Amino acid sequence: MFDSVDDLTTEEKVSSRTRSKLSNIRGSTSPKINILSKRKSKLRLEEVYPQFSEIFKYNKESTIEIREWYSANNKNIIYVSPESITAKKLYELCDRNIWLSSDHINAYLSYLSMKFSHVFSLPSFFYTKLTTTGRYEYSSVIRWTKKTAIFQKEIIFVPIILDESHWILAAIFMKDQRIAILDSLGILSIENSITIGRNLVRWLNDEYHSKYNVYEEDECKNYKIKGGDPDTNEINQSTRSSTIIGKAESKNQINFELDIMFQNEQPPQMDGSSCGVFVCMFARLMAENIERDKIKDIANLQEANKRFKKVMCTELWEYAKKSGQVNFEKYEDS
């Protein structure tokens, strides 16, 4: 069952404290709110994209069951290999006002990696570890994908936290040779987006060399930045980075396009607390192979974000029951 549209279109304004804390990573002032965008944000999902509404269905009974389970034994843990989430953290997903922590995001993205064989999700502290000293350090993460054939995946998700207060998502599309940067608040500067793209390209290059024992002189290649104003050199500038994946004997250059998806647009996040939900929703829609422009449209529907937190709650709970980690019958009798 879906909640009423009135319940789902309530807006919380981004707090001045949040804006101030994030000001050092802002590239420009926030885009002006477009009246058409405001109207569109209050449309029902099934009216705009009925073919995708199934993704946003959730079970209200799951919320009730989780509350009872948490009340009966709040020390339980659900394992979503290789991540885990405590009963308390799962219970928090039932609260619309709770900010998502790394535990929530890692558990759900790990769930997506199991649900969709063509995707792989790195944990939230991967990028922090990769750049822990303020510069790129592959040695810090060299063993992190030891058991995963990442070059056989189609999409690699990299959740990133900015200034310890705002979640964004980087998605590496291996076949399309595209790195998408999705910032629901639209505060990440172009320069910082380029830095993230460069670091991820370099990581892929080092991963390939490490896994296949390939050592050759790096070649240079261009990034093309998508999503900016064609008349603005700053936004559409090309940058240089090292060549990545390809056959060991190949000298061909491979271009990865950097796609800043909400650059110079009305950002979809209308409050100061739902960035983590957006990260998980973006990943789910990409895993479903939904086109980028449709993902942007869905993200601008306030209803979609409000529902998706409940989707996460339902899916993680149902996974726990199906995998035998929760025997809910004994909690019903207690």
Rank of each mutant, 00 (worst) to 15 (best):
K75G: 08
N76V: 10
I77N: 11
I77E: 13
I78R: 04
I78L: 12
I78C: 09
Y79L: 10
Y79K: 13
S81Q: 12
S81Y: 13
P82C: 11
P82Y: 13
E83F: 04
S84R: 15
I85A: 02
T86D: 11
T86E: 12
A87S: 14
A87N: 03
A87R: 02
A87H: 08
L90I: 12
L90Q: 07
L90F: 00
Y91H: 10
E92G: 00
E92K: 10
E92V: 06
E92A: 10
L93K: 02
C94S: 15
R96F: 13
R96S: 00
N97V: 00
I98D: 01
I98N: 02
W99N: 09
W99K: 03
W99F: 11
D103Q: 09
D103F: 13
D103N: 09
N106M: 10
Y108C: 03
L109V: 09
S110R: 08
S113K: 00
M114W: 06
M114A: 09
K115S: 04
F116I: 05
S117L: 05
H118S: 04
V119Y: 00
F120H: 13
S121G: 07
L122Q: 05
L122M: 14
L122Y: 00
P123Y: 08
P123I: 07
F125Y: 03
F125P: 01
F125I: 08
Y127T: 06
T128Q: 15
